[in-house]
Amino acid sequence: MTIQEYEEKLLQLIDDGIDTATDDELFAGGYLRGHISLAAADCELENESQLLAMKEKVEQSISDAKSELSPSDECLIKLYWKELQFSAK
Rank of each mutant, 00 (worst) to 15 (best):
T2E: 09
I3F: 04
I3Y: 04
E5I: 01
L11F: 07
Q12S: 13
Q12T: 11
Q12A: 15
Q12L: 12
Q12R: 14
I14V: 14
D15C: 02
D16F: 03
I18C: 00
D19R: 09
T22A: 08
T22F: 03
D24E: 14
D24L: 09
D24V: 04
D24T: 09
E25D: 12
E25K: 05
L26A: 13
A28Q: 07
G29D: 02
G30F: 00
Y31C: 06
R33N: 07
G34T: 09
G34S: 10
S37F: 01
S37W: 01
A39P: 03
A39F: 03
A40H: 04
A41Q: 15
C43V: 05
C43L: 03
E44M: 07
L45W: 07
E48V: 09
Q50L: 12
L52K: 14
L52I: 13
A53P: 00
M54V: 07
M54W: 08
K55A: 05
K55I: 10
E56A: 13
E56K: 15
E56W: 03
V58H: 03
E59M: 13
Q60M: 13
Q60Y: 11
S63G: 09
A65Y: 07
A65I: 00
K66F: 09
S67F: 11
E68Q: 14
E68A: 14
S70H: 11
D73S: 15
D73N: 15
E74T: 05
E74M: 10
C75S: 13
L76H: 04
I77M: 07
I77Q: 03
K78L: 10
Y80D: 01
Q85H: 05
Q85W: 00
S87A: 15
S87T: 05
A88C: 12
K89Q: 15
